[in-house]
Design a binder for these strands. Structure first.
Length: 467
RNA sequence: GGUGGCGUACCCAAGUGGCUAAGGGAGAGGCCUGCAAAGCCUUCAUUCGGCGGUUCGAAUCCGCCCGCCACCUCCA
């Protein structure tokens, strides 16, 4: 099945054509590890995970690369503001290295909790400074970069296609609308490739370079690392929608400028924002929700994944705890159904490749990753009158892409794992019920509830589970 | 100022010219049950922000209006 995806560059849904048949090189802009990723960030990684799983299910050998940016990134794109890593160091009294390690670990933990497959490569920017320097030299050799005030800048006037991804032309950009223009720049939208003039104290993250001791600009790492792992041209580049106008625009300028080859990337995919009541979630605004926040509030992280599955990746998704509750209930219901199927059907029957429901499900994904429709197919399938083993096999096939870990579900509470004090009351209650002493039975049920368990009376006796 | 997007039931959310407007959650009624839970069955927008227009036909296209948001600093 051919997968069609919305390419930000062409603004059209196009069938995926890979550079090498059957193989996909995919680069996803990863986290800058100066703080926790919030659930809005994680939405994008969930979308990329669905993309990867869909490609793999379609038979592609995927090489998935995601950077960990542990350097650079000032608070603004002018040569001012503070380096976010430095801010974090000051805030937490740690070294840059410790900050990066801490937040990298937190990110990986959150991604794992969301069942996001780990990218095959997760290169750290600080391990590729040499590659960045090499690329800046290539840009210099081609006359696309200039030095001014101790820093090296990209000269966007020399790159005729500048802004093609965002669909903006240089004239329409409102330079200096919200920030002061760096006087070193020839054009307001030139951007720094290498800094040697640091205005900041305690700038401990610096490296030797042909331009002096300093540190890289904040777009170059993605150009350098993606090419390092995927070659000078590759298939798919993903990120959040906010990366279109600046970060990806500048990446294209650097990459195509350095290699002279175009297009650098064939397909650009961008995930829309998670929005709260009436605003996007953002790190810089201070308050934000993390996966840990959700866990503290008693939610299964996968309930959040399920919530994300319900919306299309190119559409803003409204987040509220009411919506999350709905998703948690939906996921819980799905799990119960699967658990029941498991008990009744035993072994699943793997669906034929041309099973109508499987094809329908894959067809929705092949249509620009329409996960909401695919999810509707899942529910329709569950309500169909087909054999349980077939149903279970289909659900597992669906879940290979949904990633809700449905095949790993187990009855959490078995009789043997329930404390004896609870089991004693269950037994007493059974006696009371036999004697039709409902008051005593209800009293015992309350006691059991107080101990943290619920009982369900079934034709086969009482079923006990933790609340 | 420029650019882009959004407004579908109580909530989340598909659908972008044509059979009954997906799906989930919540809610309601029923069966079952001592009660409850689970399960099962049924129900839940003559209507898609508003007003016009195009069309045999529009939630879907066009215009205007109202409301909301994003981007043009950093940001998924």
């Amino acid at each position: 099945m051919t997968i069609a995806l919305y390419n930000t560059m062409s603004r059209k849904i196009e069938p995926l054509e890979t550079i090498q048949p059957g193989r996909v090189g995919m680069y996803c802009c990863g986290p800058t590890v100066y703080n926790f990723a919030h659930i809005g960030n994680m939405r994008t990684y969930i979308f990329e995970d669905i993309l990867r799983r869909s490609l793999e299910a379609a038979g592609y050998a995927v090489l998935h690369v995601m950077n960990i940016t542990d350097v650079g990134h000032l608070t603004s794109d002018a040569d001012e503001g503070e380096d976010k890593m430095i801010l974090a160091m000051r805030r937490e009294g740690k070294t840059a290295h410790d900050i990066a390690d801490f937040y990298t670990d937190a990110f990986m933990r959150h991604a794992q909790a969301l069942n996001i497959l780990r990218p095959h490569e997760c290169p750290r920017a600080t391990d590729h400074i040499g590659d960045m320097i090499d690329m800046i030299r290539r840009l210099e050799e081609k006359g696309l970069a200039y030095s001014a005030g101790g820093n090296v800048y990209y000269d966007i006037a020399r790159f005729t296609d500048y802004g093609k991804l965002a669909g903006t032309d240089r004239e329409s950009l409102r330079a200096g609308a919200r920030i002061e223009v760096d006087r070193n720049k020839r054009s307001p939208h030139d951007f720094a490739l290498w800094f040697t003039q640091s205005k900041f104290e305690d700038q401990e993250m610096t490296w030797e370079s042909p331009w002096g001791r300093g540190y890289p600009g904040w777009h170059i790492e993605c150009s350098a690392m993606s090419m390092c792992y995927l070659g000078e041209q590759f298939d798919i580049h993903c990120g959040g929608i906010d990366h279109v106008p600046v970060h990806h625009t500048n990446e294209i300028a650097q990459s195509e400028g350095a290699t002279g080859q175009s297009p650098w990337v064939k397909t650009w995919l961008h995930g829309e924002f998670l929005v709260t009541d009436s605003a996007k979630m953002s790190k810089s605004s201070g308050e934000f929700t993390t996966i840990d926040t959700l866990i503290e509030r008693g939610y299964d992280p996968l309930a959040y994944r399920y919530l994300c599955l319900g919306g299309h990746y190119r559409q803003q998704l409204g987040f509220s705890y009411e919506a999350l509750d709905g998703a948690a209930n939906g996921l819980e219901s799905l799990r119960r159904i699967v658990l029941n199927l498991k008990q009744k059907a035993g072994a699943p029957t793997a669906p034929a490749a041309d099973h109508p429901r499987l094809r329908e499900f894959q067809g929705h994904l092949a249509d620009d990753l329409n996960m909401p429709r695919a999810l509707a197919t899942v529910w329709t399938t569950l309500k169909e009158p087909i054999p349980d083993s077939e149903k279970l096999g289909l659900v597992y096939a669906f879940d290979a892409i949904m990633g809700l870990d449905l095949d790993a579900l187990e009855e959490k509470e078995r009789a043997g794992e329930v404390p004896s004090e609870v089991m004693e009351r269950v037994a007493k209650r059974a006696e009371a019920r036999n004697a039709r002493d409902w008051a005593e039975a209800d009293r015992l049920r309350d006691e059991i509830a107080a101990l943290g368990y619920t009982v369900k009376d079934t034709p086969d006796g009482a079923q006990v589970s933790a609340i």
